[in-house]
Design a protein around this nucleic acid. Sequence first.
DNA 1: GTCTATACCTCGATAGAC
DNA 2: GTCTATCGAGGTATAGAC
Lengths: 209, 209
Amino acid sequence: MSFPSQYAAPVEKSAPQRDGERTRQRAIQVAAAHISANGFHKMSIAAVAVEAGVSQSGLLHHFPSKAALLSAVLDEQERSDSEFLFGDGEPPLGWDAFDALVALAAHNSTRPQWVQLFVRISAEATAPTHPGHPWIRRHYDSVRSWLVDAVEHGKANGSIQRGAPTRLIVESTAALLDGIQQQWVLAPETVSMVDNVRFHVETLKKSWG
Amino acid sequence: MSFPSQYAAPVEKSAPQRDGERTRQRAIQVAAAHISANGFHKMSIAAVAVEAGVSQSGLLHHFPSKAALLSAVLDEQERSDSEFLFGDGEPPLGWDAFDALVALAAHNSTRPQWVQLFVRISAEATAPTHPGHPWIRRHYDSVRSWLVDAVEHGKANGSIQRGAPTRLIVESTAALLDGIQQQWVLAPETVSMVDNVRFHVETLKKSWG
DNA sequence: GTCTATACCTCGATAGAC
DNA sequence: GTCTATCGAGGTATAGAC
C-alpha cells in the first residue's frame, strides 16, 4: 500500500513545463506501466523510449540513468497517494486513520496498475542494493509513524483502549494491506481488497475500541 | 508464506543419486540463494554455474533452461515447507491449522533465506508471463483450500462459530502472513513475525471461537 | 532537447569434442 | 556428464552532430 505523507520526505511540486516536460511526463507514465507489468529489473529504457516516442538518448537526457527514471516514477506514485489520503489537510487520526485505509483500498481497486507497481517494487526493493531500497524504507517508516500517531491519539481521547498493543496493530494492519494487494494482483476477480481491509479494521475496533 | 500439502500437486521424492546428483543439489542451493538475494530475473545461470563449481553448459545439462532451474528450486521449497507443516500425517484442521501457522512463522524466523525467496517469487510471479506463475497460483490455491477446510471443520465440530466469514478469515490470514514476511525481510530486527501472526490468530479466535 | 551511431557488456542457449 | 567455444540477442550508457 502506498500512502505516505508529511511524515515522509517532502515532495516538491514539479516545476513548470518547459519544452520537454511533456516528454518527461509521458516517459514516467510508460515506465510505470512497464514496472507494473514486470518489475524494475525487466524494464528496459530502450522499450520505454520507443513507447514514449523518443530515442533512447532523448530519454536519457531527462533521466540520466535507469535508476533516476525509477525515482521519478516512485515520487509520482507517492505524490498521488498522499494527495488522495490527506488532500491538503491533516492526516486522519484515531480510528479515522483506519477508515481512510478502507477508502484507499476502494480507490486502489479502480487502478490495478498502481497496485501492481507497488507490489512489484515493495518486493524487489527489499534487496539492499536495489535502487528503490531507500524509497521503500522511507515509505514504511512513514506509514508506521502515521499509524502509530493515529493509535496514540485514539488512546489519548479514549476511542482506543489504553491497553491496546500499538505496535502489533500497526504492523499487522500494514501487513494485511500489502498481502491482500498481492492476492488481488494475482486474482482480482476472486479477492476483494475492500472487504478484507474492512474486515480487519472492524475486528480491531471490536477488540480494542 | 510457503506451506502447501497434498492439496497441491504431489511432489515426487527425488530419484536416487547418480554421479551428477551432487552437482544438481548444489546448483539448486546456489540458485535459491541468488533468487533470494535479487529475484529470478536478476539471477544469471552463469553466476550460479560458477558458484556451483561447474561450467555453464554443465549446469544446463541438468536443467535445460533457466526456467527449469527455477522449477527445481520451487519444488524444493514446497517439499521443505510441506514437510515441516504436515510431516507425514494429516494437515491440522480447525484452530489447530492456525496454530500451525504460528509455528511456521517461528520456524521461518530462523531461515531468512527461505522467507526472502518466497517474498521475491510471490511478487515477481504474479506476472502471467513469469515462469513461476503456474507455481504461485497452485500455491495459493493449495493454501486457500487447506484453510477453508480447516474453518469448515471447525464449524462442523463447534469450535468455530457458524456465522464466521470463512472467506475473509482465510484471505486475511494469508494476506497477513505474506505482508508480515515482507516487512520482516526489510527490517528483521524491528518486526516480529511470530508476534504478529499470533496476534492475528488470537484476535480471530476471540471474535469467532 | 533530440537525434544517430556505437562502445561495451551480460545473458541464455547451442554445437560438438572428450 | 562435463567441457570449450561461440552465436545472437538485448541491455545501459556515452560521444558528438544538429
